[in-house]
């Protein structure tokens, strides 16, 4: 028998692998798709959430603005309160996410006496300029995220979060 011929035993082994693979795929395909569903689920853009902050009262100094919304976490619905640092840049309202881009701690405005006019993260001394740009040499690797904002009846509305658009590179 030449070397290229498939022996009976090889043939059986190949077919066995094929049938076994088919069964494993048939069993696991629905289950794996089921498990990775959260990865593939596209989340609709968030709504704008009203806050108590009057737009007219905003200044150039960032202030803490709390806002709460109903969070739907699969079968579990809950009210979540979050906050943003909001200030006015000329006429434009800027709302920055307080989540540090280093490891997710919460940054404070002028949280460190030695660094005025900066956001400061107390966890690992990360610092950001007022527009959210991270200061080189401190732990964070990117600028603070930004919330979309809207105004309605003189009150501030906070929308979905997006990457910082203020920092020019």
């Amino acid at each position: 028998m030449s070397n290229n011929r498939v022996s009976r035993r090889q043939f059986l082994n190949y077919t066995l692998t094929g049938v076994g693979g088919f069964m494993a795929a048939g069993m696991l395909m629905p289950m794996v798709r089921f498990a990775i569903d959260p990865v593939l689920q596209s989340k609709g853009a968030g709504d704008f959430v009203p806050t108590d902050q009057k737009v007219a009262e905003l200044t150039e100094t960032p202030v803490k603005v709390n806002f709460s919304f109903e969070q739907v976490d699969a079968w579990y619905k809950s009210d979540v309160t979050a906050m943003a640092w909001v200030y006015k840049e000329g006429d434009k309202v800027v709302a920055l996410s307080p989540v540090c881009k280093h490891l997710g701690c919460t940054v404070g405005w002028e949280g460190d006496k030695n660094h005025p006019d900066e956001f400061f993260c107390a966890c690992h001394a990360g610092r950001y300029h007022k527009n959210g740009e991270n200061i080189p040499g401190t732990p964070p690797l990117g600028p603070l995220d930004e919330f979309e904002v809207e105004e309605k009846d003189g009150l501030l509305l906070i929308g979905p979060v997006r990457p910082n658009t203020l920092v020019k590179k």
Binding site: P30, M31, R33, F34, D37, L40, A74, W75
Partner: peptide
Amino acid sequence: YLQNEVAFGEIV
């Protein structure tokens, strides 16, 4: 939720 909202939940 897993039966109606998750893909293939009904099958699993």
